[in-house]
Simulated assay, not measured.
Amino acid sequence: MTGREELHVLWQKYTAKEIDKQEFDRLLELIRDPDKEYEVKSLIYLMLSADADEPVAFDVDKVLARTDAGIGKIGARRKNIGLYRRMMPYAAAILLLGGLVTFLGYQWHQNKDSSAKRFIQADVAPGGNKATLTVAGKSYVLSEKHNRIKTDGNVLLYQDGTAITDRQMESAVAEIATPRGGQYRITLPDGTNVIVNAATKLRYPLHFEKDKREVTLEGEAYFEVAHEADRPFYVKTEKQNIKVLGTKFNMSTYAKEPSVTTLIAGSVEVTSPLSGEVKRLLPGQQAVLTKGAFDIKHVNTKDYIAWTQDIFSFNNMLLSDILKHLERWYDVEVVFAPSFKDRRFFAEIPRDRMLSISLAALASYGEVTFEQQGRRIIVK
């Protein structure tokens, strides 16, 4: 269990009044961790807004500052007074932390059956290192404890040298496929590094040809291509093809979405198989292919490779497009209510957060609400 998962479990126990002293001490340790500040504030927002008829808009930091009043109110209430007396030492300990959950505790005690509790119980964990490797007609489910595979001669290995395949492969083609909620890293035979995002397939030979290196992509991947001037590197997709010598770029080519190539460094040529159009990109440029035609524009490349650093970066992006990213990463279904009106958002959210935290971050704008039903999200 990761630290964030433990935080969610203990937080749920605290709000349900089922936490013991040892567990509470551990909760305080997690709250003190600066890396958990974003998570804790989001949990507070989530619980305060869970029962609201309209989206809650407030400054969490200001709420957390109301410590003395919060403690006083908890102590003054007469309902379930025995429980509050037992909880007072805990509340005092929280006060020493700057009142981080005092106000939350007060709100929770006012509504024992808050839907926030049910919301957290039905939460969805983020994606992780999940993929299946298929080579020579045999499939291998890759270990979630590792995050990278590599080729050493005719053997496929994890990054620590542990063998994956049970025999040597000759002139075979390997395919690594990630499910929704999965990602993985690959070092290709020539030293090129690739990160494949969720719901993606990458096919590559265990031995590249002498005059070219060629892979096939469905989905999204980030490439750092090893430079070989006399042996170009090709990425082939159903929608477009890319030719490079040595460069860093991101390519997204999901079905029913525009094909997008973003160049970080070096130079690439993109080709549309449908129209035959060829464009050369410079660093900082992006090619968006729609109906066989390229639209070239300058972009902030960090937004398009932030996912490789486990961050969602949404810069003036339509909410409907943002939710496509969440669907793939959390393996959920998004349904739009008839009253839904699309709008653009600016948001930066760590990808290792629980789904409820990511939704709370978006809902904090006060312009949208989400109803979570297991792996089904209704947008209003």
Score class of each variant (00 low, 15 high):
K41A: 11
V270G: 02
R231Y: 06
D295G: 14
K138A: 05
P273A: 06
Q240D: 08
V334N: 00
L100G: 14
K239Q: 14
K256E: 07
R353A: 12
M354W: 12
K302D: 15
P55F: 01
K239G: 10
G246I: 03
A91R: 10
K21E: 15
K291M: 08
D59H: 04
K62S: 14
M47D: 11
R343L: 15
R343H: 11
Q285S: 06
R4Y: 15
K302R: 10
E220F: 00
V194A: 11
V155A: 13
G82C: 13
S272K: 00
I311W: 12
I44G: 01
G105W: 13
K73P: 09
D230A: 06
V101A: 09
R167P: 12
P283E: 01
K297F: 05
G191Q: 07
D33E: 07
A199V: 02
P283F: 02
A306P: 04
G153D: 08
Y140E: 04
F294K: 02
K380D: 09
L10Q: 00
T290N: 05
L83F: 10
S42V: 01
K17G: 11
Y222R: 12
F294M: 03
I44A: 05
T216F: 04
Y184D: 04
I71K: 15
K380Q: 09
E170R: 14
K138N: 06
Q168I: 08
M1N: 11
V278M: 08
D20H: 07
Y45L: 03
A50P: 06
D295K: 09
T369E: 05
I176Q: 07
D51C: 03
V379T: 00
H207E: 10
D190F: 08
T151L: 15
E144K: 04
N154D: 15
T102D: 10
R148Q: 15
L157M: 06
F345Y: 07
I264S: 13
K279I: 07
R203M: 12
A229I: 09
W329G: 00
R78F: 10
L95W: 14
A229S: 10
S115M: 13
R85W: 06
Y45A: 01
R328A: 05
L326G: 01
T102K: 08
S275R: 11
E238I: 14
R328T: 01
Q309H: 12
K243Y: 01
A136E: 08
G153W: 02
V335Y: 06
K380M: 07
